[in-house]
Write a protein that binds this DNA or RNA. Structure first.
Lengths: 197, 197
DNA sequence: ACCTGAACACCGTTCAAGT
DNA sequence: ACCTGAACACCGTTCAAGT
């Protein structure tokens, strides 16, 4: 950190990395563009070249989060050819593990306005996450291990419990049991609800 | 609003009411103590008498939210003596209706740090909400309409899907089906998972 | 007890100017 | 193309002083 050249080199990547670290360690409220710039040794206006606004930086963090989430659950998903309960379990633990390891990021990913003029890439990345749930259901249905019905509707009954479990667990709501046991119960409940009639 | 007396009268209640409105209409990011003070015609330092910090105001909003949520679901819960699926349906729709009518408030309620030195009242109010879920399960079990097991563990398999559904629905994640249909599916899945073995 | 009004140390954003 | 450095209009918070 001796003598810094005029150009930072890769300020954009440095901003994203540092912001992601701050988000994970100190929460969304602690994110400040000026502090980021100070820490990286650039002027307060420098980030603007790479992120027109603070929201643009947050969107980029959320996008990266979805991409890493899809990557993590795809690894679990890769156990193709295995029975549905096994794949569900792997996918669920991958998702919950990701979420609990970086709750503020997940909060950002799912609080971003995916609706109006939000980043196109962000919506697409979120869609790829949903698609993984769809693939899991379709595979289970094709094996006769998951009840019939439109895959998107069945997938919602898988994603909602998992998303809700992580939300409750990381919110600190005083749930009267241990988190690990809770996840076992939630996964088992999903499996029962998905079982063929 | 002609000539305002030196004392506001009930600044605390006015701050809470206005903050709640701003939260619902413009989101958490639009909440500013100074703007609140301006709108109510008091000086920037005035809110401090009633809320030592902005976080204290947010905690008070979350507390009020939990109390109104418990009130709303208690009304649905009041259909005592009715079969479990019916009570589950009423409670679920009350919760989801509340959440989707004020998503930013629910975000605040479940993002507050319920863990460390957070407001004691807030933790207790959240606990009363969980207790409603427990009561629903215990009642269903006593009627033989809900599978056996520790009520707190079964209750989590009810609350998690509902909480997750509202989180996904209000986040704007591009789910491929209509919200209403989705809620029907989620409730049905919960009922299947709760059914006796 | 409750509020004013000024101060302090921060923000995000903008933009001429530098390299 | 990328960044500086100063400016602008905001913040939350603090605190003497007023009523």
């Amino acid at each position: 950190m001796e003598k810094r050249p005029y150009h930072h080199g890769d300020l954009r990547a440095a901003l994203l990395a540092r912001a992601g670290q701050t988000l994970r360690e100190r929460g969304a409220g602690a994110l400040s563009l000026r502090e980021l710039a100070r820490d990286l040794g650039v002027s307060p206006g420098a980030p603007r070249r790479h992120f027109a606004t603070k929201q643009a930086l947050l969107d980029a963090l959320a996008l990266d989060g979805f991409e890493r989430l899809v990557e993590a659950t795809a690894a679990a998903q890769s156990s193709a050819g295995r029975p549905f309960p096994e794949r569900l379990d792997a996918m669920a633990r991958a998702y919950v593990g990701f979420s609990l390891s970086d709750p503020a990021l997940v909060g950002l990913m799912f609080s971003a306005k995916h609706s109006p003029e939000a980043s196109q890439g962000l919506r697409e990345a979120a869609l790829r996450w949903v698609d993984q749930g769809l693939a899991l259901i379709r595979d289970g249905q094709s094996r006769g291990e998951v009840r019939e019905g439109p895959p998107d509707r069945v997938a919602l009954t898988v994603l909602a419990p998992l998303h809700g479990y992580t939300g409750l667990a990381s919110s600190g709501v005083p749930l009267p049991q241990t988190p690990d046991q809770g996840l076992d119960d939630v996964i088992a409940a999903i499996a029962r609800a998905c079982a063929p009639a």
